[in-house]
């Protein structure tokens, strides 16, 4: 390890034994944009040893307001490759695999093989449901996060619980189409997702399984909605 004190300030909230568990963990982050960029940054900094970032998109100017790895100089570049470059800069002990393509029914099972947790940092219902089904087949939890305007939502989908399918069953249009996606909303939601991922890997704390956690940053309110 290049910097032995790297994780000094993780302690004692993360113990030395837990740090070793994180080092041996492998997480798939689907989407390397608004949510995924921050999630990848935080997981790399906390010491998750292996991260796979999946994104077939390239950066556009409209991403600059919130997507951590976007820069004026990398517009048109791959989001997954930008994530790989960033992770190499901040923690060379992390093994990062960039998948510069979309998550599909054909590649999802292979991408989730051997993973501890899947993080849903996608931006549409179809891909989110695809990931939930694949995570269910893999027998691992999926940490769902979504934003619209000043508002964040996370919850953890456990294998076979069907909650995401039920919530999306009515179809409809994401409110972000009219409310936009703000930078601090993306950062907060991603922080919640990263913390949830670490808790799931370590088996500690109360997770967001079976409950939606809603935050409204304009009202500064934090709500819990239980689901079954």
């Amino acid at each position: 390890m290049l910097f032995p004190d790297r994780y000094q300030r993780n302690a004692v909230s993360v113990t030395a034994e837990e740090q070793e568990i994180l080092k041996n963990a492998s997480v798939l982050v689907a989407g390397c944009g608004g949510l995924g960029g921050y999630v990848i940054e935080l997981l790399a900094r906390v010491g998750v040893g292996s991260i796979t970032g999946v994104d077939g998109d390239v950066f556009q100017p409209s991403n600059l307001n919130r997507q951590l790895f976007s820069k004026e100089s990398n517009i048109g570049s791959s989001k997954a490759e930008a994530a790989m470059i960033r992770v190499a800069e901040i923690n060379s002990d992390v093994s990062f695999t960039a998948v510069c393509g979309m998550l599909t029914e054909e590649n999802a099972d292979a991408l989730l093989s051997g993973k501890s947790v899947a993080v849903d940092a996608l931006d549409n219902a179809e891909s989110r449901l695809l990931l939930a089904r694949a995570a269910g087949r893999a027998g691992i939890p999926m940490v769902h996060g979504a934003i619209s305007g000043w508002h964040t939502r996370i919850y953890t989908v456990m294998p076979g619980d069907g909650l995401l399918e039920a919530l999306f069953a009515g179809g409809g249009t994401g409110a972000e189409k009219i409310l936009g996606n703000l930078p601090f909303t993306a950062a907060l939601c991603a922080s919640q997702q990263a913390a949830e991922t670490v808790k799931l890997i370590l088996g500690k704390g109360d997770t967001a399984a079976g409950r939606i956690i809603e935050t409204d940053l304009l009202d500064m309110t934090f709500e819990e909605i239980k689901l079954r």
Binding site: G31, G33, G34, L35, G36, A121, L122, D123, N124, A125, R128, G145, A146, I147, S148, H151, R153, F168, G170, G172, T173, G174, A175, E176, N181, A186, I212, E214, I225
Partner: peptide
């Protein structure tokens, strides 16, 4: 009845 915004944004 709980009413939520549908959200898919990322």
């Amino acid at each position: 009845l709980t009413v939520l915004m549908q959200a898919y944004g990322g």
